[in-house]
């Protein structure tokens, strides 16, 4: 075998090995990302369950737990942005991403219900937004709407934004869509119980909030 032939063959094997190492490294980081998302979800799941249990156990209204509930809400928002990044990197077909997304959606629904319970018992008026989007390429304004909601959540941290992938195959989400009577035009928003569709500008979105809600959206405990 000539030197050229030998080096060509070895170079091919080296390139394969290097490609494999790169692939493994990237895969390792992606698995670490998913593990981190999973760990955060587990933690939030425990916290949510704890709040829920606390709520059920106490005879008196556990209104002091509202603060913990707000912290949970911002942890959910961070989890949402990590999940969105992981979905961008790994694609919507990745089974593990979809499983984590379903788990995340369940946590959101659970938190939403808890928030409603707190509001009823503690006479608070938290502003909640249920936001429905699609990643299937059929929603031109969804990215803009998501970005505008991120801005609003950053500006008004007590604003509770729950984002749902409309196409996610999850029973609880389908029930939520059914009981809220969404028509399927996306993006869709349910702001304080009122349904609206489409996104044009931030100003237009802000108008859909109850008067003064954004300015005083910090929870007020009586």
């Amino acid at each position: 075998m000539t030197l050229f032939a030998r080096n060509s063959l070895l170079a091919f094997l080296m390139a394969l090995t290097l490609g494999g190492i790169v692939f493994y490294t990237v895969d390792h980081f992606n698995r670490m990302r998913l593990a981190e998302i999973s760990a955060i979800e587990d933690q939030i799941s425990i916290d949510t369950l704890s709040l829920d249990t606390q709520f059920s156990l106490l005879a008196a209204t556990p209104c002091e737990s509202v603060a913990s509930s707000t912290t949970l809400s911002s942890e959910l928002a961070d989890l949402g942005s990590r999940l969105s990044y992981a979905e961008d990197q790994l694609g919507s077909n990745n089974e593990q991403v979809m499983r984590l997304k379903k788990q995340y959606s369940l946590l959101e629904i659970r938190d939403y219900l808890l928030t409603k319970q707190f509001a009823a018992k503690c006479s608070t008026r938290p502003v909640t937004v249920l936001y429905f989007y699609s990643n299937a390429g059929d929603c031109a304004d969804c990215d803009k709407a998501g970005y505008a909601l991120s801005y609003l959540h950053t500006t008004y941290p007590s604003l509770r934004v729950y984002s749902f992938d409309y196409n996610l195959d999850l029973g609880a989400l389908k029930t939520l869509i059914a009981i809220t009577k969404l028509e399927g035009d996306l993006p869709a928003f349910i702001i304080d119980g009122k349904t609206s569709y489409g996104f044009t500008t931030l100003e237009d979105l802000q108008k859909r909030f109850p008067k003064g809600a954004l300015a005083t959206s910090t929870p007020a405990t009586k």
Partner: peptide, 20 residues
């Protein structure tokens, strides 16, 4: 193209280390 680039770099290294 990334694979070809990796192959080229590997070939370069091997030839650099070869006796000629």
């Amino acid at each position: 193209f990334l694979f070809i680039a990796l192959y080229f770099e590997a070939f370069l290294l091997l030839t650099f280390l070869s006796s000629p």
